[in-house]
């Protein structure tokens, strides 16, 4: 098992030479991810991972890919999407133009879910979905809209529980174990690499979706990111987090009002 000290050295090394700053990540989770990296790469000693970082071309890119968590699904937490569909989308509909930011979008499953909601509300034509992640490899997957076919049964079920009434299979074509989502859905998506740790605000949004990303950050970094979201939201814009995430430990909490007990907050100040 990697020690606290070794983890610290690794974090410093990756930051000093490559600029990726993992110092604000939750240590408990990061430790497990590094141990997983050891397993994947057959590493048994700390000195081996250090020498790979220093001398192997492209190793840090691989490290970033593997230690960030990229587990996601379409319409994850169907009741959350039901609330989006019934309460938030009708408010967005009143705007001449809708801007949404999916921060930490991973392989894009939630961006496509959102596009489906907007399309069904006949709003996709006047929307723009910005999808960002630190990891360029997952963004390439997201752009293609190709998801494993074995997951589709679960996604179709989630979609129905979220209040979807169309035939889910109309949104994709199945081919070689993959479901390719319709190009109509990603026409309004813009993908780009963005690091929540170090990059600044780049636009003003009506809704920011950042679900199960903050859990990988410590309280200090969470606060920084929440301030970034605050400065990237229009007045009365919405912030949506994961079902177990909260803004209550953050300095921006007074500027937001929570919708009942759901993990959606409205910016009120």
């Amino acid at each position: 098992m990697i020690s606290d000290r070794e983890l610290e050295v690794l974090i410093n090394e990756v930051f000093e030479y490559y600029g990726y700053d993992f110092s604000g990540y939750s240590k408990a989770s990061l430790k497990r991810r590094v141990e997983r990296l050891y397993q994947i790469d057959g590493i048994s000693r700390f000195s081996d991972v250090l020498s790979k970082i220093r001398s192997e071309e492209g190793y840090v890119k691989h490290l970033v890919e593997e230690i960030t968590v990229n587990v996601t699904e379409m319409f994850r937490d169907p009741l959350f999407y039901k609330l989006l569909r019934e309460e938030i989308v009708p408010v967005l509909a009143t705007k001449p133009f809708i801007r949404i930011w999916h921060a930490g979008c991973s392989t894009g499953e939630e961006v496509y879910s959102m596009a489906i909601l907007l399309k069904e509300a006949n709003l996709l034509h006047k929307s723009l979905l910005y999808a960002t992640d630190i990891n360029s490899v997952v963004l390439d997957t997201a752009k293609k809209g190709l998801f494993p076919l074995r997951m589709i049964k679960q996604y179709a079920e989630n979609y129905r529980f979220s209040g979807g009434s169309e035939d889910f299979s109309d949104y994709y074509t199945a081919n070689y174990g993959l479901a390719k989502f319709s190009c109509e859905l990603n026409e309004k998506m813009v993908f780009s690499q963005h690091n929540l740790v170090s990059d600044a605000s780049f636009n003003e949004f009506d809704l920011i979706m950042c679900r199960n990303v903050l859990i990988y950050f410590d309280k200090h970094l969470q606060d920084r990111v929440l301030r970034l979201f605050d400065s990237s939201l229009s007045c009365l814009g919405y912030l949506a987090l994961g079902t177990k995430e909260t803004i209550k430990f953050s300095t921006v909490q007074d500027k937001f009002q929570q919708l009942n007990r759901e993990k959606i907050w409205k910016k009120v100040k």
Partner: peptide, 21 residues
Amino acid sequence: APSDYHLLFEKDETISLDTSE
């Protein structure tokens, strides 16, 4: 422990959640 998350402990004795594999 909530469903669908791993439950982890931080050194400051707080709980972290994790949706990894």
